[in-house]
Nucleic acid binder design. Structure first.
Lengths: 207, 207
DNA sequence: TTTAGACTGGACTCCCCAGTCCATTCTTCT
DNA sequence: AGAAGAATGGACTGGGGAGTCCAGTCTAAA
């Protein structure tokens, strides 16, 4: 994605990415054509290919990057200050609300399935997003540990990984069933597990 | 999907579904054409439309049903006898192994994204699969409760929902990163949480 | 003001692929 | 055997959509 060299050009390029993201959220990747994007963004074919010489794939990748950024932003400021039990619950509510609003539209998941196999770039975006997301959660757990709200024996990375998996799964189940029950269950039991560790012994050591 | 009326016909129909499932696992829905399926299954266009008059959508739906059945079968016999801690770990191993073998091929996830929005039937298949899967897990938790391996206060449905979400998320993260770490973390912490409940107090009641 | 190059419009091409159609062969039943 | 219907082969069509091209306009710098 070569940078546009004038202000007008940059504005157009941004309009394309944002508009494309909208259309993709509404219709899904499989059913979205360049003409749909062209209509929505009030551009022409030549503009699309001018700013994304690689064609549709390159544009989809740009949208994926755009959406990936939003994912963590939408969880702020909660995600970056997981320092008390109240803050964890505020974060939980923010996550649930974000995905309930978005309902059955999971731009990233479907984008990756479309571009995924062909473009190694898409995998990298997804992997990096997961890495960062998990790291913030783990940091929150370490903060709890530092404040002695939970014992030092709690494995921050493993718990963060499990929590992240629960969120992902919760969201994808919501996409097929329309219910956020699983997402809530995953978040609640995940946080409960941390609180529970505070009361009882350390993490289980089995296996 | 009208049933074929001769043995030969039924064999062909089955060959189509199984072959299509293979191709779809290998190439992904977005990149699979009817001609790919025709080649693999040694059939002709007219056969595809003879057995699936609704065309590609109907065939994809049939494949989704086929794959959904396999999901639970592949976890047997473990999923149906979650009656001791050892059996839970055997089940865990079976799930991990199954998805590691399948690696980055998640037929169902992508099938639903393709057919999903247009066909209400796809959602129904996914929802039903999730319901059954969760129910088996919940049944396992109730068995543990009945054997007094965990306290009666444990909420079987909520824990089963969370565990299922963790599995789904673990699998989808594996699809983007290639690593089963999250799947394992989700299963392990989920089971640990049950074991932990056995030692300490009842489930957390917070919030 | 001129000019190079960025930006834009939109018609056009070309290919791919779902779906159609009909002629032919095989099954099954009486 | 022979008829009715199931099963099969494969050529053909039609439309949609990605990507191309070129002519025309705007921007910015000298």
């Amino acid at each position: 994605m070569p940078e546009a060299s004038t202000a007008k050009g940059r504005a157009t390029q941004a309009r394309i990415v944002e508009g494309a993201a909208e259309v993709l959220r509404e219709q899904g990747v499989a059913f979205t054509t360049l003409d749909d994007i062209r209509d929505r963004t009030r551009t022409s074919k030549s503009q699309l290919f001018h700013y994304f010489p690689g064609g549709k794939d390159e544009l989809l990748l740009a949208v994926a990057r755009f959406e990936a950024e939003r994912v963590l932003e939408d969880q702020q400021p909660h995600l970056d200050c997981l320092d008390s039990w109240e803050s964890w619950y505020r974060w939980r509510d923010a996550v649930v609300e974000r995905y309930e609003l978005q309902n059955d539209q999971c731009p990233l998941g479907s984008l990756f399935l479309q571009v995924g196999r062909s473009e190694p770039g898409a995998r990298a975006i997804a992997a990096e997003l997961m890495r960062q997301w998990q790291e913030r959660i783990a940091e929150g757990i370490r903060t709890l540990r530092a404040r002695e709200l939970i014992p030092a024996s709690v494995d921050a990375d493993r718990n963060a990984a499990a929590l992240l998996a629960g969120i992902q799964g919760g969201v994808s189940i919501m996409m097929s069933t329309g219910s956020s029950a699983h997402l809530k269950a995953a978040l609640d039991t995940g946080i409960d597990q941390l609180r529970h560790a505070a009361a009882g012994a350390g993490q289980a050591e089995v296996k």
